[in-house]
Design a protein around this nucleic acid. Sequence first.
DNA 1: GGATTGGTTGGCAACATGGCAAACTAAGCA
DNA 2: TGCTTAGTTTGCCATGTTGCCAACCAATCC
Lengths: 109, 109
Amino acid sequence: MNAHDEELYRAKAQVIKAMAHPSRLMIMDALSRGERCVCDLQRIVGSDMSTVSKHLSLMKNAGIVRDRKVGQQVFYSLRVPCILRFFDCVEAVLADRYSAFHVLSKEAD
Amino acid sequence: MNAHDEELYRAKAQVIKAMAHPSRLMIMDALSRGERCVCDLQRIVGSDMSTVSKHLSLMKNAGIVRDRKVGQQVFYSLRVPCILRFFDCVEAVLADRYSAFHVLSKEAD
DNA sequence: GGATTGGTTGGCAACATGGCAAACTAAGCA
DNA sequence: TGCTTAGTTTGCCATGTTGCCAACCAATCC
C-alpha cells in the first residue's frame, strides 16, 4: 500500500461519504428527475435552507453536483449520472438483508 | 415525504455510510478478489486488528459482508457483488472532477 | 436609496465516528 | 491443565459531522 493508493482510497471515500446521508440521498433522487433550485430542494428535504445549502456545497465539493446561478436562484444538477444505478444496488443490499432476516425468522419457528 | 420513505432513506444511507471509509474500501477491494480472514485484512489495511474487526462488524451489520468461522479464523466475503460496479462510477466522478480542474487550469493560462 | 427574496457562511452545541489499548472469548496445541 | 493464536468487545479520547441560528451577500423590486 503506497502513498498514492492511500490518497486514492481517501478520495473515493470522500465521494461516497458525500452520498451517505438521508437528506443528500433525497436531494440526489430529486435531481435525478432534473435540475432544481435550492428553494425546491429545501421544500423536499424539509430542513433549514442553510442546512440544505451546506449539504449541497459538500456534494459540489465532492464532484457529485454542479451549480448554475440564474438571477437570485441557484440551480443544482447531477454531474455524473451513473450514481443513480448504484441506488438499485443499495436496494439490493437492503433486500438481501431483509430476506436473510426472513430466513432467520423462519428457522426460529 | 412520509415516515416510511424517511426510514428507507435512512436505511440506504446506512449502507452507503458503511462503504464510506478508506480502510473499508481497501477491505472491499480485497474481498472482491475472494474470501479473506481478518488476519489477511489486517495486513492489507495496516491498522490494529481491533480496528479492522470493528470495520468488519459495521459492514456486516449493514449487509455488505458475510462471515464464516473456520477453526480459529473468521473469513469474510462480499454479500452483494453489484457494489463493485459502483466503484467504477466513483472513479468516473473523480475523473470528471479532475478533468474539470484541468479545464480550469487551461482557462487560467 | 431601502426593503425583500434566495443563498451562503460562521459559530456553536449535540452527537457520531475512529482508533488505540486492555480485557475478554474461543479454538488449538503441548 | 496451561499457553498461544485469532478475533471480538469495551472504554476512553480525539476528531468529524450535523443542524440550527444569526449574520452576511447579491439580485430584484419599489
